[in-house]
Design a protein around this nucleic acid. Sequence first.
RNA 1: GGCGACGUAGCUCAGUGGUAGAGCAAAGGACUCAUAAGCCUUCGGUCACUGGUUCGAAUCCAGUCGUCGUCACCA
Length: 566
Amino acid sequence: MGEKILVCIAWPYAKSVTHVGQIVGSILPGDIFARYNRMIGNDVLMVSGSDAHGTPITVEADQEGVEPDVIVERYHPKILEVWEKLDIQWDLYTKTTTPNHYAVTQDVFLKLLNNGYLFKDGAIAPFCPTDNRFLQDRYILGECPNCHYGKARGDQCEECGHLLEPQQLMNPYCRICGSKTSSIEFRETEHFYFNLPLLQDKLQTWLNAVSAQWRPNVVNFAMNWLKEGLKPRAITRDLNWGVPIPVAGFENKRIYVWFDAVIGYLSASKEWAQLQGRPEAWREWWEVTPENPRPSRSYYFIGKDNISFHAIFWPAMLIGYENLVLAYDVPANEFMQMGGHKASSSDGNVVWTPDALARYGGDALRYYLTISMPETHDSNFSYEELVRFNNDELVGVFGNAAHRVLTFTHKNYGATVPTPGEFTAEDKALLEISHNVFELSGKAIAAVKLREGLAESMNAARAINKYIDEQAPWKVMKTDKQRAGTVLYTVIQALGALRITLTPYIPAAAQRLHELLGFSGLVKDTPWQFAEVLAGQALPEPKPLFTKFDPPAAAEPETAKTEAAK
RNA sequence: GGCGACGUAGCUCAGUGGUAGAGCAAAGGACUCAUAAGCCUUCGGUCACUGGUUCGAAUCCAGUCGUCGUCACCA
């Protein structure tokens, strides 16, 4: 058995069906990485789920006049459908409303409390007498003291961008009841704080040791945060939606979402273990012991907005809990813009994943999103580019290489893999490429350079087309059928290699090629290594691997705003 | 405003001290097995700008401009 690999993927809000920016930023890179690791024989546990406790969900629930759980239960099943169509191979995709997650969150809370990392402190918070509840900053509106915009929020004025404290707002009022007659009060309340300064040194030591290979934006961001000095951070709120606080006197408060969401990685691992019928199995990935100081390599696939939570707060929580494995790498991606502008679901400037899937399917979407993955800087989504990459590269380069050879073999060699004769230098060169692509692409994927890993396979596909043109088996066959058969055999070996190396990227297409080459079983369970396609192996009737698409109509908007999809 | 990442051919991007690269787009050519796909050739860049270090800078340093993120109640 190989190494234990823990693939943790950022938890999407359960208030939409996910947009392609979320897919390209964390879901897809995690899936590609996990699939590769399974194929090289590593023992992968890949988990995530829907985050139910985010503020946007309570805002939406308040607007609709329903319980937050109604919003969650509306979207969670739709999200599961998206994973199905996108071929995301989870070990478990759960949600933060499970009893298990509540229990694990409370356990972490109590452990940190007992270990001395939490403390209580008073705070002054805005309170609405009409609704009889404390208000979060963004539930308060008022006049901005800076630009005098009338609907500034308690945390920030959207008009001038000024960061605000609720007390600074002029004529503040409650966003829920809208009452301007009963003025907002500022009442005393009490909360638990996570004493991050106590963990500063241990965090620094850990980061210094582990981050040498991390992406520069992640390392610099985290290091800078530590350099400025950590401050205690409140982890409870005056809310009624979230994980209850397991301490007497705090019945009307909840653990705040940023604290419980990251615990999801641990709670999901435990839930997975229970579902396996091996409730202790999660320890194999998580539990640090003297004999096993690094039970697994854990990777956190997130967007750049999430670096502080995964490179600072969550590691601090794990250190405070003791004996749980810390991140091995946090390969945060930059953002994918939409039509040249920042993606924003509130502005409608997003492409919903189900829309993109309905139009072009999983292969084309996965391929395009990988090609344009924002690994080093922001990228940009457009349907036009998606169609172009599908037509030029999937259809034209890879699909064509497979189809031209398989149809030719089918017509002229009795639908079996021809028996090769002597190999020429050119044959050996292509066979060498077919062997090397495993190491070249694998090395890139292992280093989480996923675009590069895909490029290695596509370079091999280009080499196939070049070789076919140079060898011209349709010409050679007229005088030397044995020689032309050797050429076809050679190309089929190269296709056999690509059906494996492309599996993490476009699993459905790779499976189709697997079958077109006469194999049974699942290519995703095939080891990541060269395997000969044996001479004499029967080949089924060839079919094109991919479908060509018409370019999208020019007038068509780049971002769909279908209410139904959301 | 502070901090960080990024800014390279029309487009998407690689390249972190030694004579500027790939794919696509564009132009031309040879071929015909293939979803008129594929192959070959050509065209195309004062590497955001200014200054500095160096024998030598896309690459290191400083500043400027632009994009994005973050700054502790968005996650």
